[in-house]
Design a binder for these strands. Structure first.
Lengths: 299, 299
DNA sequence: GCCATTCTCTGACTTTAGTCAGATAATATT
DNA sequence: AATATTATCTGACTAAAGTCAGAGAATGGC
């Protein structure tokens, strides 16, 4: 990577850190500390479960609890047990809290308008487009891939999206009952792994590795959400699956794909998979691939 | 301003706040709090005067002093009186401090490289260009214009740049001794004002208003640094000068300009100045302008 | 039905990041 | 030479933003 590129990116990060610092100061005039304002803003007009809020803001549960008590005392929000699960508490803003939310929201608008105000209309449009580009292109770096339970809500959501997509793209649609099955148990250690790609916590892709007899692994259910496609995530998912395979001491990886998924085929070929004769009964597949893994160096 | 534009900008600010939050966490692994790391980083390998550091970081002098003592105890930096002015203390990093600086620097590189790493070369280039666009276009919003002493270093620096530029652009060069003078005393209240435009503290433009006999003001020394040109700052400087004129109860503003400064002429015309017959002996001028100010509404 | 896990809460602390009011010494201004 | 200003430091506070251990209730998985 060119040094010039790195320093360009660093300059951007630096100036934006400053700008965002200035932005945050603008929230301070609302009469409560940043952390509390952020919390009120995240609760929003619709309310939220404490658990979700804690995950989103990444706060310690004790700290969170105390913040909530403080805001409750100020009559900005109210908590009550969730209907679905009596352990989790649901937060809703009071009328006063909603007014504060509106103030915070307005302050955000003002900051944004302040960036646009000095510009001519054409430059405003350019700024917005450039921001969209930066956002899209930096998304890839914010994606984290890791193993999760194949039965987790995120995993099931990904699989659902995956099925919906291939149903739309395969010539004859897709019926999970007819395709080669991939039971959750087989995508669970030690018989396999299920990887989920997340962007800011939200699932945006998945891939499964199923250990077959001997030293052979089977890659299944690889999917990347369209919002993050074209950023090299397919390759990263494949690399992550190979990493898992290496840890499981596998020697060969196999996978199959449908003729309509041209970008997937290109990815597999580019990643060193070579086409082999049919090895599975997957009725929706037209191409079968295989790759010999390099033996792991002893640790 | 379109609502859609504002919400687009807000989304960008939001995602980048998150990214930058993550970035800052990466510095935390260096074993000292963010504020102290930032300080060490700003001191840099060349050293800095405490005064400048305080301005740059915007810290209270007491707090700053305590931070320095803490870092001195840890043998990360050393202070000594400045040679030029025994009141100011100069900070230099010790060998240990320089090692820490290198670590911080490397962490910054790692973050930047992490943004670039997942991208293909063409996308890397696009990201960098988009970042440069965003930076350039948001610069205007970060510029602050305010009155400063015409004898201040920033003012003198601006005037120097201004002279250098017109010397290069006027047909016959520019000799300050031959031009209409603008003594510092006349650009100082109550006889006049000197405005400086600053971007993140750095001067990037200036403009002077000199009160002539009666209710007439004379605009002189208007200059905008090339790095921020094309962002509407000339107009803002002119507006700010008119604001000052209104506060001084002036009724008419005058100015003159050289034929080679086409963009300046366009600005004046656009701002409502109309060309009038020569009213001054400025030998470098070819055009004279005037504008009647609207009377200020009573406060 | 039992046991592990999840979710929230409380108590007891800590660190970070300041603010504010002087005191002191050096320099600038008049 | 007298006075004002500037730069730094010290003492005495404060608010914000956590951390960590453990308790208690509810739920999920077997």
């Amino acid at each position: 990577m060119a040094k010039k590129q790195i320093s360009d990116v660093r300059r951007f990060n630096r100036t934006f850190s400053q700008r965002i610092g200035a932005l945050q100061e603008s929230y301070q005039k609302l009469g409560l500390p940043l952390g509390e304002a952020r919390l009120v803003y995240e609760v929003g007009t619709t309310g939220i479960d404490v658990r979700d809020l804690r995950n989103r803001l990444g706060l310690d549960s004790g700290y969170m609890s105390r913040l909530l008590r403080k805001l409750e005392e100020r009559k900005l929000l109210a908590t009550h047990a969730s209907a679905a699960d009596a352990r989790v508490r649901r937060i809703e803003l009071t009328a006063k809290g909603k007014r504060l939310f509106a103030d915070i929201d307005r302050a955000g608008d003002t900051v944004a308008a302040g960036l646009l105000a000095p510009l001519r209309p054409a430059d405003r449009q350019r700024l917005i487009e450039a921001m969209a580009d930066v956002e899209r292109l930096t998304r890839a770096a914010a994606v984290r891939i890791g193993p999760e339970k194949a039965s987790s809500p995120a995993a099931l959501w990904c699989l659902n999206e995956y099925f919906a997509e291939i149903a739309a793209r395969f010539d004859a649609g897709f019926n999970p009952a007819k395709g080669l099955p991939a039971p959750i148990a087989e995508m669970t250690p030690p018989r396999g792994v299920f990887l989920v790609a997340r962007l800011d916590g939200r699932p945006v892709g998945c891939g499964a590795l199923i250990v077959e007899t001997g030293f052979i692994g089977h890659i299944r259910r690889m999917w990347i959400a369209s919002e993050v496609r074209g950023l090299g995530l397919g390759r990263r998912m494949l690399d992550a699956l190979e990493e898992q395979a290496a840890e499981l001491q596998l020697r060969t990886l196999r996978l199959e794909t449908n003729r309509n998924l041209a970008e997937a085929r290109a990815l597999y070929q580019d990643a060193g998979y070579r086409e082999v004769p049919r090895f599975s009964d997957e009725p929706y597949a037209h191409h079968w691939f295989e790759k010999a893994l390099r033996r792991r160096p002893a640790p």
